[in-house]
Simulated assay, not measured.
Amino acid sequence: MGGSTPTFGFPRELRILSSREYRHVFDSACFKVHGKGLLALACPNDVGHVRVGLVFSKKNARRAVDRNLLKRLTRESIRLQQHRLPAVDIVVLSRRGVLELDRQTLARQLHGMWRRLEKDVKRAADAKTSA
């Protein structure tokens, strides 16, 4: 098979796994993208592709089934958009009101957040090259 067809899996390489990697994003987040009930913090990485970490606390989603649904929907959104996203580490956090959103609204929120992040990173790269 040719290598031109993109794969849409979600392997370990697309995940932020260690507490050190999470801490790096929290400490040096260059980009913040807000959505209703969600916040994404991002910083450039050196691995050449997007990586994502999820932080959905009991404070904002009491039941494990709700947190798991949020994680599943977020992973699916990243999985489908991974080829458009720049090489950044993203940590997605839940906020108050996240459970008030239905699945379609949440999917739209995430898609809009990825588009804004893509634009912000491109704008920052353009500003860096013109400076």
Rank of each mutant, 00 (worst) to 15 (best):
M1K: 05
G2Q: 12
G2T: 15
G3F: 11
P6F: 01
T7Y: 01
F8W: 01
F8Y: 03
F10W: 00
R12K: 09
R12T: 02
R12D: 03
L14S: 07
R15F: 02
S18F: 02
S18D: 03
Y22A: 05
R23N: 07
H24T: 11
D27V: 03
S28F: 13
S28E: 13
A29F: 10
F31G: 11
K32F: 10
H34Q: 13
G35E: 08
G37I: 05
A40S: 13
C43M: 11
N45A: 06
V47E: 13
V47R: 15
G48W: 05
H49Y: 08
V50F: 08
G53Q: 10
K58T: 14
K58E: 11
A61L: 03
R62Q: 12
A64V: 12
A64R: 10
V65F: 07
R67A: 08
N68A: 14
L69Y: 12
L70H: 05
K71M: 09
R75M: 01
S77Y: 02
S77I: 00
Q81Y: 04
Q82C: 03
R84T: 09
L85G: 03
P86S: 01
A87P: 03
L93Y: 12
L93D: 05
R95W: 10
V98M: 07
E100M: 08
L101P: 03
L101M: 09
L101S: 04
L101G: 02
L101F: 01
D102A: 00
D102G: 01
R103V: 14
Q104M: 11
L106P: 10
A107V: 07
A107Y: 00
R108K: 14
R108T: 13
Q109K: 01
L110F: 02
L110V: 04
L110R: 04
G112A: 11
W114N: 10
R115P: 00
R115F: 07
L117E: 06
E118H: 15
K119M: 09
K119F: 09
V121S: 10
V121I: 11
K122R: 15
K122E: 12
R123E: 14
A124Y: 02
A125Y: 00
K128M: 02
K128R: 13
T129R: 05
S130F: 02
A131I: 06
